[in-house]
Write a protein that binds this DNA or RNA. Structure first.
Lengths: 210, 210
DNA sequence: ATAATTACAGAATAATCGTTCTGTATATTG
DNA sequence: CAATATACAGAACGATTATTCTGTAATTAT
């Protein structure tokens, strides 16, 4: 009948009472809260209030605080780290792409004064000390960034004098994280840009001699 | 009288019941606990048990958890960061001293498997998000390291081609912190040494061209 | 209509948090 | 000895924690 036609291209409405807040919407607010305050300081009560998500639904969707945190980190990596990694290109020269990458890092760390630094480097790193699940998550996220940088370096490989790309990627990732940390203490975007610029110059210098 | 003579060179024994544990002894255990678990996860109850310090004395000496944490950080900087900064010398060439510095960083971050990373970079950085006292403390500690590195660079200044020492010091400090963070995820000392070596090579390369 | 199903608001729970308080133990002073 | 002073063990406190449970609201299916 007619009902079939209008439902053709839409997901069929689910059975029971419709949700007030979709998990995806709540995730961004939860992410910002963990980011600003840390894992322990962000209580379930306030997370529910801030996200507009009822406690029951939160436990239904994320199984608890730990699950919500991990989901918030995944959301953070997708929406915030993704663009930073994307800046690596390859689009322009290696120098240009690295400059764009570090600009994105500085911007992410200082854009919003309520969320200085990086959710992974400043918050996940803390709880990774006591919780092995979190430690493994931290390791995976760190490795992923290093892989992306190493891949970009490989793409610009110079057959004559190639510094160890793996180690160089590790160093550049370390600088990015150091910048995130420094922002947590309230450093200005300007001072961080100077560090970023020096990092790019380092790569150029390393590659120009061997 | 006779009592005067025997008390001449000793601190006169204080009036009441003598202490079981000196604050200084407790501090090292408290530091390790914060370092391993983070600020919130280390509860007063367990801090008392682990340090052997009674709750009353802890509040007498440190005024509460926040005071104990700040004291633990000061103790950490003195006993753990101090030697790392001392490795900067100047003792040998800049290259040698920087290599020694980064070796000390890697060693500190990986020496004890129970306390990976850095108390300042991994723990203080987290709580700095929600607490302004902690944020200022983080900023001060970060600045202090940058000052020390900048001073060492200044000492090796080359009049012909000197890269901006302030920015270079910021970059080297960022690498050191990035190494600490990476250790928190469980990275091996070996992989961190490769990053450290690349950092030293960067400085050499930067200075050899301008 | 009724049944079935999902979401929600909020109470209930049990544990733990940081902090303060109470009484007792251990010391010096007179 | 008694008086005084400090440290300590542990109870007490109120607040907050993460999680579970209970009853009700809102929707689709029949």
């Amino acid at each position: 009948m007619g009902e079939n036609m209008e439902a053709r291209n839409q997901a069929p409405r689910p059975r029971g009472r419709p949700r007030g807040v979709l998990p995806q919407q709540a995730l961004d607010a939860a992410m910002r809260m963990f980011w600003a305050e840390g894992y322990d300081a962000a209580s379930i009560d306030r997370l529910c209030r801030e996200t507009g998500m009822p406690r029951a639904s939160l436990y239904q969707d994320f199984r608890g605080k730990q699950g919500l945190f991990l989901a918030a980190i995944a959301h953070y990596v997708e929406t915030r780290i993704g663009p930073v990694v994307a800046a690596l290109g390859p689009r322009g020269t290696l120098e240009e792409d690295l400059a764009a990458f570090f600009d994105a890092v500085v911007d992410l760390a200082t854009r919003d004064r309520r969320t200085p630094g990086c959710l992974v480097s400043c918050v996940l790193a803390d709880v990774a000390g006591a919780n092995d699940t979190f430690r493994q998550e931290l390791d995976r996220r760190f490795s992923a960034l290093e892989d992306a940088i190493a891949q970009r370096l490989e793409h610009a490989a110079r057959p004559d004098c190639a510094p160890d790309n793996r180690a160089l990627a590790g160093m550049l990732a370390a600088i990015a994280r150091g910048i995130m940390l420094r922002a947590r203490g309230g450093a200005s975007a300007q001072s961080l840009h100077m560090i970023a610029e020096m990092a790019v110059r380092s790569v150029v210098a390393l590659r120009s001699q061997g």
